[in-house]
Design a protein around this nucleic acid. Structure first.
Length: 316
DNA sequence: TTTGGGACCTGGAGGC
DNA sequence: TGCCTCCAGGTCCCAA
């Protein structure tokens, strides 16, 4: 399931293979995967065909590729995202994959959209969007100025953001992320801590897996009221969020099944490092180190599951 | 305005 | 073997 580290792995892969290249053809195999593009399939194809990819930018789990409609060599400023007013937006949802393939490779079972580039000897010529559960999708969206005048996301230097991502907060790996602003927003909210972590308008990029891992590392219960958290607890939580995401990024992301792979089709290895998520009934490592046998518990939460240690993550 | 719940979607697992 | 139900979860929409 793609969360921030997995999307960042994809962003880096795309940057290597598609930046500066020109789209020569688009095939929409399943229109449901471009349902967020409200102007229809033909408009989606015409907006992309002939465009040159300027950069690959990410905020949270949203990825966008500014589209340039001129000709000539890619300039440094264009590569940074400037010089464009529209972008190809991608969200992987739960099971989306962006794969670079050669045209002669067989189609994937859940292939939804195929984007062809001008041939290049040292790179695959097709970008394929594959999605089993169709929670993700592609669209062409406008670029709008950021509210703070800072770059819209990682990989960008222009103060622009894809309109579809303008409502979400910066993610904790973004150099422009403000700890103070997050603490203030958390204080204003009157909700449970994990619900706040999953709220993309407060902090983006955190999904169920990394929320549980960061809460376990911080010894915090998922239902702790946000307004009662101490600044030191929030600071430690943020530190752990960054740590768990960075560790995952270094090994290519988390993989539970075939639902997440990078642009080359390879899986990540962070699943092997998970401390609490998916470990129901297994011993808590921290308690084990202290000579205690405590079993990880799974509790229903927001129509999904929350994993925690009932001893070191007590609800106060 | 803020908060919480449910729908969307597909395929695998498990029960009968 | 076949059918049915449950489960996974990111995001959006709507009701309270």
């Amino acid at each position: 399931m793609p969360e921030l580290p997995e999307v960042e792995v994809v962003r880096r892969g795309l940057q290597k293979w598609v930046q500066g290249r020109t789209v020569t053809g688009v095939e929409v195999v399943d229109p449901r995967s471009i349902r967020r593009h409200t102007h229809g399939t033909e408009d989606f194809r015409s907006q992309l065909t002939g465009a040159r990819i300027g950069a690959v930018v990410r905020r949270g789990k949203f990825l966008w590729l500014p589209l340039l409609h001129d000709s000539g060599e890619l300039q440094d400023s264009e590569a940074a995202g400037a010089g464009s007013d529209v972008a190809l937006m991608a969200h992987l949802g739960m099971s989306g994959q962006l794969l670079m393939q050669d045209p002669d490779q067989p189609d994937e079972k859940h292939l939804k959209v195929r984007i062809a580039f001008e041939p290049r000897a040292d790179a695959p010529d097709e970008l394929r969007f594959v999605d089993q559960r169709i929670f993700g999708g592609l669209s062409v969206t406008s670029l709008v100025p950021t509210s703070d005048g800072l770059p819209g996301g990682l990989g960008d230097q222009a103060p622009l953001i894809a309109a579809e991502a303008a409502h979400i907060a910066r993610d904790p790996l973004d150099p422009s992320f403000s700890v103070e602003a997050f603490m203030a927003a958390l204080k204003r909210r009157r909700t449970g801590l994990k619900r706040a972590l999953l709220d993309q308008s407060l902090i983006s990029g955190i999904g169920n897996i990394y929320a549980d891992e960061a809460l376990w590392a911080s010894k915090l219960h998922y239902a702790r009221p946000t307004e009662k958290l101490r600044p030191a607890e929030v600071a430690e939580l943020l530190q752990n969020v960054r740590a768990v995401m960075t560790a995952s990024l270094e090994v290519g992301g988390t993989t539970f099944d075939s639902l997440y792979v990078n642009v080359n089709g390879a899986s990540g290895y962070f699943e092997r490092s998970l401390n609490v998520y998916g470990r129901e009934g297994q011993p808590c490592y921290r308690c084990q180190d202290n000579g205690l046998l405590t079993l990880i518990r799974r509790e229903p939460f927001m129509n999904r599951s929350s994993y925690l240690c009932p001893v070191c993550q007590r609800k106060r």
